[in-house]
Nucleic acid binder design. Structure first.
Length: 873
RNA sequence: GGGGGCAUAGCUCAGCUGGUUAGAGCGCUUGCUUGACAUGCAAGAGGUCGAUGGUUCGAGUCCAUUUGUUCCCACCA
């Protein structure tokens, strides 16, 4: 093995090997319990970013853990066609060639998109592999695959037949740039500085006017009424009369409607049913005509008269000038308000009335809410259930049609002959009613999230009753960011319940966003994104993975920092070198099972620590607390195994006694092997590379069994006793450092203790690690001579003659400090134990522990006092 | 308007169902060619856990109020 950890030498090689060995494949095995994760499919247009890296790392860690535990673990990967995002990109691309959708036509354009898909969909897959993702690639699914299309049609037709899908003219969010309808979830609001334009609407036949305030004057061509609050004494007499729409010179009614807020603005609202959701409702209540004054591209239509053809903002500008010139403008005031933007192209969306397809949500939402309420599905962390309820309980009908070409086309045909609307799972060429053959399929495609909602079952073969579907569905855990709960998680839940009659997954593990070092969101426009592939190139995939997991609490955002990845890389190097040390020592040694070794105290201590690590890591992983699991392994590996055990065992490895040496090596190998297994789900590459270098192992660690806690190896008492040895080492080191005793100068240690055997058994280690020459058991301080430092420990009292290094005053100071500390501890424990409430109500073990602690500290205090007296003499 | 999150060492953050002497990484100080590792080792400094009040034998952890910060949802023209 090389001296330094160098991931480039083995990561790609190992990944290839895993693939060739078929380690990722999940095949139904009825002797095993299935464990399924479906991957949130990345967009085919996308490149791997830090968000993916975190998402995939979490999933891969969980699936590897479960696989090693013996589950039939399936991680099903896929890619998403991302209707709008992809179409926008391809439109941009062909634009450079002087082409457009219209020129190419539907067929021609779709050919170009498929070309794009074939070119780029593989890219993200390769990037996922770089991270070490152990997905079953043989099941790689694209959301436009045949099986997904089949599922989409099945679901659409079923919902249509249940009247849960309908077509109607409603207010929707329109993106004038993408020229398509959007769902509510696809609109992002941002506050913008705008204006209130106060416009005078004169009452018909009278000389007075109503002052109307609006932020979007250009929509006034679509005004079909003016509303005042029926309670509003200022205006209630006018209800039923008419006002004359300025510029247009059309009379429109004054209606009374509670929508008009007396407190806000002038209390008069212009009603534009075609361009405002609230106005639309008012329009319905008062039976007002719906007049749409804008084209699909955001320009004004012929109803805007002389402004016909102008862009909405240009129209606004000129109209305001004209209103001013005509004396209709009563004033302008600045006004900040929230404006909706398209989540793909960020253009300002235009609410407008349009004939679209909708999914009726109320009935679907109810059981989806119940599923979470009754814990059929759990959010981790739980607080995200609240986000989910909030959305589900207020959900409006879902606009699913998109005026795009790339996507699942709506399976509805219209008969030109009789006007019949036919919704069918298969293509229709003859009208079932009139027998006419002039049928046209609906031009629109479905929202990308419509097919994504079916992902947990469409990927497993739905609507067919496949063996896979029966075995792997419902899936176990869905891992995704909190930004995607509405788009996807919520929709999968109601879809799974509706179409499969079973929830799609049992747990939803929500993670946060990765931010940059300054805490800003990573975004293209800021240019602060960090490319995970560059990080992998520089530090290795394991380092990146570990940095994304360690010390991260579920659901919380984290900041990316090179320093952290570097620290993780150092950890990899640590593991690497510790392993190198162990493997070096296996040469010429005979590795035996633990049962055949006479275990030394240090051996039992590290084995005990290992058992705790196994127990705690398993527990944490089962609760999806990966950050904690990582921390446990980091501490165990670095502190317990490397800093302590390896150092403790070094003298043993140099022993003349071969049986002793073999024993030490065997324990080293045992602990290392188990640690690697525990670490493998997090850092698959380095653990496997090392594993293969350990004599006696075969195959890959990927298929090894995850360590199980063994109570027989817990050695709780031995471990506790051994910590006394560690105390001796730590304290001697500390005193030497404090007394400025050079490390090379070996000290003598005199001990009064009742643990002679334990200390003798570890003499070599103590001498080496504490930097001592010899240990002598004595009955009193006097043996150590005058200039001795006293260290009072639970295991015994140490006296270290420091010769000329000792400074009596300094030593007194040190002991006084100790005394202070111990006294404080006694006071704390004492007050606790004197508290009747504590003694009677706290668990017995806690009280006993406290008592033992008190005794220990009291004893220590006595010894320190005695020593102080001796010095003062 | 409604709902979250965060506030713990100089910096970035852990701390799960209340019970250890409150932890880690980085940074800082002091020392170390300790034959696995300087991507390292040892010793250390550094925190009234945002504030106030409450529940409890016991609160960083639970409740209320409050300050700052941040996000999401809704949206009054």
């Amino acid at each position: 093995m090389e001296k330094t950890y160098n991931p480039k030498q083995f990561e790609d090689k190992l990944y290839k090997d895993w693939e060739e060995k078929g380690c990722f494949k999940a095949v139904r095995d009825d002797s095993k319990v299935p464990f399924t994760i479906v991957m949130p499919p990345p967009n085919i247009t996308g490149q791997l970013h830090m968000g993916h890296a975190m998402d995939e790392t979490l999933q891969d860690t969980i699936i590897r853990f479960k696989r090693m535990q013996g589950y039939c673990a399936l991680w099903l990967p896929g890619t998403d066609h991302a209707s709008i995002a992809t179409e926008v990109k391809v439109v941009e691309q062909i634009k450079e060639e002087g082409l457009s959708k219209e020129i190419l036509g539907r067929e021609g354009f779709l050919d170009r998109v498929w070309d794009w898909k074939h070119k780029y969909a593989g890219r993200i897959v390769e990037q996922l592999k770089k991270l070490g993702s152990s997905c079953d690639w043989s099941r790689l699914t694209f959301t436009m695959d045949e099986k997904c299309s089949k599922a989409v049609r099945e679901v659409f037709v079923n919902l249509y037949n249940k009247k849960l899908i309908y077509r109607g003219s409603r207010i929707i969010n329109w993106c004038p740039c993408c020229k398509t309808a959007l769902s509510d979830a696809e609109v992002e609001y941002a506050e913008e500085d705008g204006h209130f334009w106060h416009i005078k609407y004169y009452v018909e036949g009278e000389d007075k006017f109503l002052e109307v305030a609006t932020t979007r004057p250009e929509t006034m061509f679509g005004d079909t009424a003016v509303a005042v609050n029926p309670e509003d004494t200022r205006y209630k007499d006018l209800i039923g009369k008419k006002v004359i729409l300025p510029v247009v010179n059309k009379a429109i009614p004054i209606v009374g409607d509670a929508h008009a807020d007396m407190e806000f603005g002038t209390g008069v609202v212009k009603i534009t049913p075609a361009h405002d959701p609230n106005d639309f409702e008012v329009g319905v209540r008062h039976n007002l005509p719906v007049v749409r004054v804008m084209n699909d591209d955001g320009t004004m239509n012929e109803l805007a008269g002389k402004y016909n053809g102008l862009d909405r903002y240009e129209c606004r500008k000129r109209l305001v000038e004209d209103l001013k010139a005509g004396g209709y403008l009563a004033g302008i005031e600045p006004h900040a308000h929230n404006v909706g933007h398209c989540y793909r192209c960020h253009s300002t969306v235009e609410p407008l009335v349009s004939k679209q397809w909708f999914v009726k949500m109320k009935g679907l939402a109810r059981p989806a809410i119940d599923a979470v309420t009754y814990k059929k599905i759990s959010f981790v962390p739980e607080r995200f259930a609240k986000t989910y309820y909030n959305w589900m309980e207020n959900v409006k009908d879902w606009c699913i049609s998109r005026q795009l070409w790339w996507g699942h086309r709506i399976p509805v045909w219209y008969c030109a002959g009789c006007g019949k609307e036919i919704c069918s799972k298969t293509d229709v060429s003859v009208c079932p009613d009139c027998g006419g053959t002039n049928l046209k399929q609906d031009e629109d495609v479905l929202d990308t999230w419509f097919s994504a909602a079916l992902w947990p079952f469409s990927t497993l073969g739905y609507p067919d009753d496949t063996s896979d579907l029966e075995y792997f569905y419902p899936t176990d855990v869905l891992v995704t960011g909190y930004d995607i709960i509405f788009f996807w998680v919520a929709r999968m839940i109601f879809s799974g319940i509706e179409h499969m009659r079973k929830v799609p997954f049992r747990d939803v593990l929500i993670h946060g966003l990765i931010r940059d070092e300054k805490g800003r969101k990573m975004s293209k426009s800021l240019g602060n994104g960090i490319d995970p592939l560059e990080i992998i190139e520089k530090y290795g995939a394991d380092s990146l993975r570990f940095s994304l997991l360690q010390g991260v609490a579920p659901g919380n955002d984290m900041r990316y920092s090179d320093a952290k990845v570097e620290a993780c890389r150092n950890f990899m190097n640590k593991i690497w070198n510790a392993s190198r040390f162990v493997i070096m020592n296996t040469e010429g040694a005979e590795i035996k099972p633990l049962s055949e070794i006479r275990l030394l105290p240090a051996d039992k201590w590290i084995i005990s620590k290992l058992q705790s690590a196994i127990r705690d890591v398993t527990l944490a992983l089962n609760k999806f607390e990966l950050g904690i699991a990582c921390q446990i392994m980091y501490d165990f590996m670095w502190s317990d195994f490397c800093d302590w055990y390896i150092e403790l065992v070094k003298p043993v490895l140099k022993s003349e006694d071969k049986a002793k040496r073999d024993g030490a090596v065997s324990v080293l190998v045992f602990v290392l092997e188990n640690s690697l297994k525990l670490l493998h789900p997090f850092i698959p590459f380095v653990t496997d590379e090392i594993y293969r270098n350990i004599p006696g192992t075969s195959g890959t660690i990927m298929t090894a069994e995850f360590p199980r806690y063994n109570s027989k190896l817990a050695y709780k008492k031995d471990a506790l006793a051994f910590s006394g040895i560690m105390d001796i080492i730590k304290e001697v080191r500390a005193v030497k450092a404090e007394m400025n005793c050079p490390p090379s100068k070996k000290v003598h240690i005199y001990i009064t203790t009742e643990s002679k055997r334990l200390i003798s058994a570890n003499e070599d280690s103590i001498l080496k690690l504490a930097g001592a020459k010899e240990i002598k058991f004595v009955h009193s301080a006097s043996k150590a001579g005058e200039n001795a430092v006293t260290i009072v420990l639970a295991i015994g009292t140490l006296y270290i003659p420091m010769g000329e290094l000792i400074d009596i005053e300094k030593e007194k100071e040190r002991l006084s400090g100790e005394l202070e500390r111990v006294t404080a501890e006694i006071a704390r424990a004492d007050s606790k134990l004197n508290n009747m409430g504590f003694v009677s109500k706290a668990p017995k073990k806690l009280v006993d522990d406290e008592r033992a602690k008190l005794d220990k500290f009291i004893e220590m205090r006595e010894k320190i006092l005695k020593q102080l007296r001796a010095l003062t003499k």
